[in-house]
Design a protein around this nucleic acid. Structure first.
Lengths: 345, 345
DNA sequence: CTGAAAGCGCTTACAG
DNA sequence: CTGAAAGCGCTTACAG
């Protein structure tokens, strides 16, 4: 580190002052074109790159974003949800010449971590992915007035910036689709009630029942934790109540549900039909392939980043909300393609 | 940001100089115990956290690590490989009070990204995960003398610090195991030749054949890209040459291989046995459950981080290598558990 | 054990 | 359009 180039060497080599070099670095228009070219050439030739810490100190501009992911949600880590999201964020960062710092919000270290994020003076804004409903990170961020955007809406602070899909409507439509295929006893394996996506999808399920004038049957409603194991376990419980179709609030849980059905000797979709949520890469390759609600995770990461950059640039007083579209991907588990499809009601 | 606390306020409130506050922050033993307590109390009460950029500038200590992951390896992003690795890194960082910056090495932005990492003056060291064999990041890091450790050994620079498993021996043992189960025509779907893990596992396969005095048959050797799609495609090709068992160099590819076999009407393990590599979460839940070589990915992340911290603390002149153990997890696809198991040779 | 002061590498009014 | 100088918030010899 000792002998790294500084702005001073660049100034000398280009025959200008440090101020001018700094202006060139920051694309200040008030620099004579020739001067600019000359300085740029020198920086190129000497392979100079300004010290980020120094810029951060002097100007408060670091071009660094923070990404916070709650560890509580173990499903995020057995799925490729997380890689997809990060790819989207990274793509946007690359385009805008930003970098990102990553924190996994382990409850044990949460307090210290929040302080780090919030007080480091290093981060211009943060993206919070799939926060738990009462996540303290959100509170801390609000207090400190740091620009941030949520991936997944907040249950109570409805005026925060976020990007999300319409979980409720997507779930409702998926369930209505099952009903249109003729299923009479449509159950659900919901997500956890402390995650807004879980709550929204369950409400969507109930909306669908209501549309058809059906009262929700508690026996047909199970709550999983978005994981394979959770889906497995809850499917076993549901089995006692003889559903003929299940809307499963995540693909990982759908995987577990299929395992439970296999073990119970039930055929999918003939004995029980299934619809998942997410359209994870593996969904196309299950046996039989999984019908599921596709949500654009990569895109969500990308859009969240751009939203955050806009917030940073234009001030946080204009929170933005982006709802991304979902799509029901019809494969085999819903039974739409089998010869013996039940009649449409 | 404007009105954030600085060391000056802390100094005033505790009746000492900035120097002393700084010493307290940095756990300098040359501070009177009472003074230390007093200053600490003030910092606590005022919820003060030193500015990371300023510390970085003044001392070069940022407590920030970099993590670089090549985008070229798409399999890393459809698997949960990446989340597991990051969880390990994050756990170690939390313990040592470090943070991490993340870069996905998109080829398009690679040059600029390298410069960012290397010249930012912000990062104390970096972890490079699963670099491609000729990854330019590694060269840049070597040149700039930044401490770094690889997850997965380097093919040519054998004196770099890394943590890895013994891919070659693990693969050999897996193949020998298949042979002991009585399989005569053991094929392999190898990983890509531009990744060291791919190369090492293929060599392990060949080692096993050699041990048994069998010449490798090019028709029984396919090269995949570690992805599900690759496994699917290569399994279809292998099928023409009638293997009775296949060592598949990743679980994702094994998933694809199983799909190809299902479509071809082959039963696993009765018609063709399979062994994977990784023991991803889904491996226990395939139909039938996948026998596979478990590698401790989370642990690799953890150990890589600690290795890096040691390198940073004690100087980079003593590169360290850590080989983590693997374990063959015997489930159903190898056929060990079926009633009709072939006789041991 | 403590403080005054120089310095880390930039940015940014201010004056010209 | 350009430069001199103060300042960002810390750390660290140096002197006592």
């Amino acid at each position: 580190m000792s002998n790294r180039l500084t702005i001073i060497e660049i100034a000398k080599h280009s025959g200008v002052s440090r101020s001018t070099v700094s202006r060139v670095i920051n694309d200040d228009p008030n620099v004579n074109t020739e001067t600019r070219e000359r300085v740029r050439a020198v920086m190129q030739k000497l392979n100079f790159h300004p010290n980020v810490a120094a810029r951060g100190l002097a100007a408060g501009k670091t071009r660094i974003l923070g990404l916070v992911i709650p560890m509580g949600v173990s499903a995020l880590f057995s799925d490729p949800y997380f890689p997809q999201l990060i790819q989207g964020i990274s793509a946007a960062c690359n385009q805008h010449n930003y970098s990102t710092m990553l924190w996994l919000a382990d409850p044990e270290y949460e307090r210290r971590m929040i302080q780090q994020i919030v007080s480091s003076g290093l981060i211009e804004g943060v993206i919070v992915a799939s926060a738990l409903n009462d996540d303290p990170v959100v509170e801390a961020l609000m207090q400190r007035q740091i620009p941030f955007v949520l991936v997944g809406r907040h249950p109570t602070h409805t005026n925060l910036a976020y990007v999300d899909v319409d979980n409720r409507v997507s779930a409702r439509d998926a369930v209505l689709y099952l009903m249109r295929l003729g299923y009479q006893r449509v159950a659900t394996i919901a997500g956890p009630h402390n995650m807004i996506a879980g709550v929204d999808r369950l409400n969507g399920y109930k909306d669908a029942l209501k549309t058809r004038g059906i009262a929700p049957d508690p026996n047909l409603i199970a709550e999983g934790d978005f994981s394979e194991g959770g889906g497995y376990q809850e499917m076993q419980r549901l089995l006692r109540h003889a559903p003929d179709a299940v809307f499963v609030a995540s693909d990982a849980m759908a995987l577990g549900a299929m395992r439970a059905l296999r073990e119970a000797g039930k055929r999918v979709p003939d004995d029980i039909a299934l619809v998942g949520f997410d359209d994870m890469p593996f969904a196309a390759h299950t046996e039989p392939p999984l019908t599921t609600v596709r949500q654009p995770i990569h895109r969500a990461g990308f859009v969240a980043t751009e939203t955050l950059l806009a917030l940073i640039a234009e001030g946080a007083n204009a929170p933005r909300r982006v709802i991304l579209p979902t799509e029901l991907v019809i494969r085999e588990t819903c039974g739409a393609h089998r010869a013996s499809a039940k009649p449409t009601v």
